[in-house]
Design a protein around this nucleic acid. Sequence first.
DNA 1: CCTGAAATGTTATAAAATCACATGAGGCCC
DNA 2: GGGCCTCATGTGATTTTATAACATTTCAGG
Lengths: 168, 168
Amino acid sequence: MTSGNSAHSDPLGFEAHDHAGCIDTAIAAAEAHCAEHGLRFTPVRRSALEFLLREHRAIGAYEMLDLLRDAGYGSQPPVAYRALEFLVANGFAHKIERLNAFIACAHPGATHSPAFMICRDCQSVAEAHSSPARGILGDAAKATGFQIEGTMIEAVGLCPTCAQKAAS
Amino acid sequence: MTSGNSAHSDPLGFEAHDHAGCIDTAIAAAEAHCAEHGLRFTPVRRSALEFLLREHRAIGAYEMLDLLRDAGYGSQPPVAYRALEFLVANGFAHKIERLNAFIACAHPGATHSPAFMICRDCQSVAEAHSSPARGILGDAAKATGFQIEGTMIEAVGLCPTCAQKAAS
DNA sequence: CCTGAAATGTTATAAAATCACATGAGGCCC
DNA sequence: GGGCCTCATGTGATTTTATAACATTTCAGG
C-alpha cells in the first residue's frame, strides 16, 4: 500500500526547490542540534536521514530498512524503526500517519505543529508551516481541560500534477 | 498496541453527555441518511455502528471483529474492515490514524473536517468541531495548487483525568 | 580502566490491513 | 415472476506494519 509505488517520477513538494543544497544543510543542522543537546547522531541515524532527504518523499519503514540494509546496517525491522523513531522524536523527520510512512522535515529548526498535504493519487507529500493549527483545537482543549502536547494535521487530496491528469 | 486495553473504565469525551438517547438518535440519523442517498444500511453495518456508539471510544478493527463475530457475523478481518469502511465513507464514523482505531462520529450531520483530542495515557478520544481547519492549509493549498478533499486533525496529549493523575 | 546508560543486532511474534474468490441478496427492467 | 446485474457477505490465505525480548557492543564520565 504505502509501498512499492516506485512508478513515481515526480517527487516534489509541489514547488521548485534547491535539492542539492538542502540535503547538506539539513544534515548539518541535525548534527548541530544533536551536538547542542547531547544526542548521538550515529551512522545509522545519519544515513536514515540522508535517505529521507535524498528521496524527498514519504518512505515506509520497510523501504527504509531495505536502504539501510543495502548500506551495510542490520537487516531487521527494529533497525529502521529505531532510526526513524529518533529522527521523529527530534524533529528531523515526521511520520505521515495516513501513509504509515516517514518524511524528512521540510522546515528544520522551526517550531513544530506540522501540516501535510498528501496526494491520494501519487502519494506525494508537501509540508506546510502552521502555528495557528494549535489555535483551532486550543479553544476546544481549553474548554474541556485537555492538555495538548502535539498536533498532527494531514490533508488528503490531489496534487497539482495529478489534478491536471484527472481533468484530462 | 491499540489493542486489548479493556482496563479502561472511563470512556468519556471529557464531558457529560446523554448516553441513552444518543445511540438511538445516531442510528436513526444514519438510517435516514442511507434511505435518502440510496445506501444499504445492512445488519452488519448497523451493528458495527451500534457497537461504536455503545462503547463510545475508539475501537480497533480486530476488536470490532470480535464483537461482530460474537454477534453472529463472519469471523474474518474483511467483515470488520468493510463495515467500518462504509461507516467512515459516509461520515458515521471516523478513523483515528494515530490509534489505528475507529470511533463513532460525535457530530452526525455536520459537515466534516473533524478534529480529535487523544489522550496518550488512557487513549480516550474527544471530537471537536472545526471548520476553520480547512483555512489553515487552505492558504498553503491555494498557493501550491493542491486540491484538498479532506483534512484530519489529531492532537495528542493528556485528558483532564489523566493530567490530574499525573500531577499527583 | 571500569562502569552504567544508551545503541545496535537478531530472533521471534504480534497487530493491522488487504487480496482473491466463491456465494448470496436486492433492485430493476421487462 | 424470471432474468440479470450490481453490490454485499463469507472465508482462506497472505501481506504489510510494528513490537517484544534479549544478547552484545559502544561510548562518555568517573
